[in-house]
Design a protein around this nucleic acid. Structure first.
Lengths: 336, 336
DNA sequence: AGCGGCAACGTAAACGTTTTCATGGCGCAT
DNA sequence: ATGCGCCATGAAAACGTTTACGTTGCCGCT
């Protein structure tokens, strides 16, 4: 025996299917008592409306899609949590998709979501303006997250990377550090380049005389380790290292420790992201906390608004989620 | 202008809708050249079939639902990754849902998924046999993960908690530790009690004379810290502590360090889970690695089989994913 | 030549809803 | 008393597919 349909309910309650639909949805145009009878019948039959049929006629899926580069790691975990939270609050389902390694795979994933979702949350390294024009149905509400967005009209949210980096540099300067080296992220990575931009800008505006030093890196712990070794070889040696993410900072500290250098007494080290591990390494890492869940939540909010009321959100709306300084021992600050 | 329908394609290619459907799906019963013409027309119009309409007639959604207690943290991140991987391999979409704090919310979430998915991956603390019977459509393929499953006929996967715990105890015994204390997880938690069971069993079978000592805990770092303080007060003191998860082990080590006790020289400490942090604490933590992604992957595989070929999987199929010992410094083993 | 069968293709029904429109009954005002 | 309008309800169309079934034309066989 298959699931009960609206017809079964109608028969059971001795009304027409139209009344059942009305009673169960709006509730308008139907007497309180008939409505009651219909509800009871539905409950008795364990009726649950066929989602596909409803979608077909309504043109609404009550589902949003989230297309992410990956699902692995703390970042995406947090992101999804924020998205899920906001989606649930709006009664929207969440369809996730990931691991589209190249642009072609991303395009396929996008097409596959077509028609299954009312809106799209998109974070993809492959998403530039051209790609979006090619692969996105233009009438599908979409919010971009941490994506290259030059020349697009889509709404977009991103992390305040430059602001965070500026905070960190100001913090280090306030502690008296002079020669602050920066470990870069992967070239082409938007977060990485924005963080470097903030580093340069803060130095330029607060301490124009201080040296600007950048070391290559790719966000991996190992690249941080190598950068640490480079730091050791420099003369004069930097008295602080600002890594573009926490894992590199941790790798860097390992290199310094192996060389017998004390952190933070001889060289301060700090990172970006505030991964959970940051407070457990020795010394605990001073870093920048970004509220990732908030990023997902706000993106979802924005998307929800667009879906409910197309046009209510100005095209090209941009928002940033704030980044906060978290001071721990590794920067050499006096800890309360 | 809305999206193109199959009718538009039919008109464009000067054939009937049936032929379009055949050409685009099976490809049988249609000439190579007409098929070609149809494909071109579809491409030209950027036709993508309306998912809802197809679901309605096909009774297949090509989507599976994953109902999880939460999305936060490394565990779920890994789990989802495994699920997504396997789902993608089968061309299935993934609908996620979480944060159903109580049984009622879980039931609502379940109903909401009804009809939107071809199968269900379920992990829920509220899911006992009764709950499932009440809320699960009986013809919906379902795989349970780490769930109480007494008296149900559903397929289920779980982590080999007892096996892992046994491995750890054997490891500690082989290093010469005699008095091994165990820090428990939250009462009622399945993983926690299985791990304790393994601990007891291993002691009983390999070293029946050794004392069995359990300390209260709830998986939190703080509870591990408190357990560590209890360990300090014990006479004779245990020479090894086996925590039911890594975070408690970390908390425990903090308590011991504060008291000036050396790990592992005076007391060995080890955990369970192999969270990423485990290798970064000092000393690095000996622990049990469970392949969470594999859990998700295998669950998805099993579900996929059930969907493709109902009845191909014996009801009540049970599987366990293996747990492996990861030896680091905290257990006092000589590190190669 | 006639006929049976097969392959390509078209027609139309079906899936389960929502929604528009028609219909009937009832109360109220004239 | 009669007409008017409103409200509850029902009938039926529509959404875009897939698929069972019917139709056509062609080929090969007797």
């Amino acid at each position: 025996m298959s699931a009960a349909t609206i017809k079964d309910v109608a028969r059971e309650a001795k009304v027409s299917v139209a009344s059942v639909s009305r009673a169960l949805n709006g509730g308008r145009g139907v007497t309180a008592e008939t409505s009651q009878r219909i509800r009871e019948a539905a409950l008795r039959l364990r009726y649950v409306p066929h989602a596909a049929a409803r979608m077909l006629i309504t043109r609404r899926t009550n589902t949003v899609g989230a297309l992410l580069p990956d699902l692995y790691g703390e970042f995406f975990s947090e992101l999804i949590r924020g998205i899920d939270l906001a989606a649930r609050a709006r009664g929207l389902h969440l369809l996730v998709s990931s691991s589209h390694d190249d642009a072609a795979a991303a395009a396929v994933a996008l097409r596959a979501m077509q028609g299954r979702v009312d809106g799209l949350l998109l974070m993809s390294p492959h998403a530039d303006a051209d790609f979006l024009r090619q692969n996105l149905p233009q009438d599908l509400p979409t919010v971009l997250m941490n994506t290259r967005l030059a020349g697009t009209d889509y709404c977009a949210l991103s992390v305040d990377n430059d602001g965070g980096a500026r905070l960190m540099v100001e913090h280090l300067l306030s502690l008296g550090h002079q020669r602050i080296a920066f470990i870069q992220g992967p070239s082409g990575n938007r977060d990485a380049s924005e963080r470097e931009f903030g580093y340069r800008e803060a130095l330029a505006s607060h301490a124009p005389g201080n040296p600007v030093t950048t070391l290559g890196g790719d966000f991996s712990e190992e690249s941080g380790y190598r950068a640490g070794q480079q730091v050791l070889a420099m003369r004069p040696r930097p008295d602080a290292v600002f890594a573009a993410n926490d894992m590199m900072a941790i790798g860097c500290m390992a290199a310094l420790r192996e060389a017998g250098i004390c952190v933070p007494e001889e060289i301060a080290v700090c990172g970006f992201d505030d991964v959970p591990m940051a407070r457990y390494v020795t010394p605990p890492l001073t870093t920048i906390q970004v509220h990732i869940a908030e990023l997902g939540e706000q993106a979802m909010e924005l998307l929800g608004k667009q879906i409910d009321n197309p046009g209510s959100v100005a095209t090209g709306t941009r928002r940033r989620v704030r980044a906060e300084l978290v001071v721990r021992a590794s920067s050499g600050a006096p800890i309360a």
